[in-house]
Design a protein around this nucleic acid. Structure first.
Lengths: 212, 212
DNA sequence: GATGCTTGTAAACGGTCGTTTACATTCATT
DNA sequence: AATGAATGTAAACGACCGTTTACAAGCATC
């Protein structure tokens, strides 16, 4: 039962992500699952209920992720030196992991596409899209850089501009990857992204040593 | 007559840009224009014909723009020194102008949004979206930077990475601007964008003089 | 002033929409 | 074996879909 309900949700999401909510009919969802549309109403009270369940889940996952690899903001003072370098490495890993999540994870990738298609229809969807994939990450990155500047790790530059210059390539590559199609081919994107973060950090961090 | 046809096109585009092609009914378009849906069929042979006319026009405009402020690629050798600096200023102006075009121009802005909503439905729309707003500009920027490197204006770095790092903030800001809403408030975006291009050029161009 | 073309309305067309209803089937529990 | 909840099908519902048709009004041309 819970299994069927789950299949309905994932199938509907996959279709919503391609065509948009309005363009997908209940009949289409049912047929993609090999059942009749009447059966869907045993699991969801209507079409919108499926959509809402998807959104609800993403909000939950997003919250969990935020808690999970939150850069440990409150532990800054607890750690001595040597922390800065580890933190910079974490940024690198975190960035690639963000890319993989939004392009490879089936739920996240489809949700992002679905939200891309719904963002202009209501302010609620616009806010959710912005929070998850645009202004949200930028704001987080800005806070991070502001902190790094205060700590003397980064050069004293406008953190807002830094955040945009750092995050924008990630955002662009995620969107570009959608076109190149199937999984496995994103190796190029990941490499570009790695080079970007490496070069970005290198050129904004304060030289406390050498260049190789 | 041509006037009515034009109004239909712009009204339909405005609705397509908000809700997506499938979610907008012929009836809705007609009522937004204060006529009955039957009247639309005097000007367009069906709903898809309106959509195709929009696409056709954008392709034409895009071609004209490419011809208009094409960075004069073939005139490089015709011009002596002193060209490089002017060219760098042009890049700055061109970038801001691109932002304004895709956010302020009513047709371009709505077309971009419409294409954003249709990009996953067919490879044709995906290609058009990519060509106009994603991979197309990146490829163009990459060519430009490769040329500037060859000319000795830019430092010897990967032009692909440079192109992404330069164009991505423009792409991000265009998408962010959609949320902030009404016109006139994009002053912040333009300023950020200006700072980005200025700082980008400054940090990748070969110092043939001083720092202020 | 009749003609014919343009531009509109109103109604109808078959089809699909989301949803509800009536009726089977399954299957653990009694 | 009987019960009853869970899960499915098939058909029907009114509403709306894109499109076509029949018809009217406006208007320049002969």
């Amino acid at each position: 039962m819970a299994d069927t309900k789950e299949k309905i949700l994932m199938t509907a999401l996959r279709l919503f992500a391609r065509d948009g909510y309005e363009a997908v009919s209940v009949r289409t969802i049912a047929e993609a699952l090999g059942m009749t549309k009447g059966a869907l109403y045993r699991h969801y009270k209507n079409k919108r209920d499926i959509f809402d369940s998807i959104v609800e889940r993403m909000i939950r996952i997003d919250g969990e992720r935020a808690n999970a690899h939150q850069m440990p903001a409150e532990k800054y003072d607890a750690m001595p030196d040597a922390y800065e370098n580890a933190s910079l490495e974490n940024i690198q890993k975190y960035t690639v992991e963000q890319f993989r999540f939004w392009t490879e994870d089936e739920f996240a990738s489809n949700f992002r596409k679905m939200l891309t298609l719904e963002q202009y229809r209501s302010t609620e969807m616009a806010q959710l899209y912005s929070q998850c994939i645009v202004a949200g990450p930028v704001a987080y990155t800005e806070d991070l850089f502001r902190e790094l500047i205060k700590k003397g790790v980064f050069k004293r530059e406008d953190p807002k501009l830094l955040a945009i210059e750092f995050y924008a390539p990630l955002f662009l590559l995620i969107n570009m990857f959608d076109k190149t199609g199937k999984t496995g081919e994103n190796g190029d994107c990941v490499e570009i992204l790695s080079n970007h973060t490496k070069q970005f950090i290198q050129s904004h961090v304060i030289d406390s040593g050498e260049g190789k």
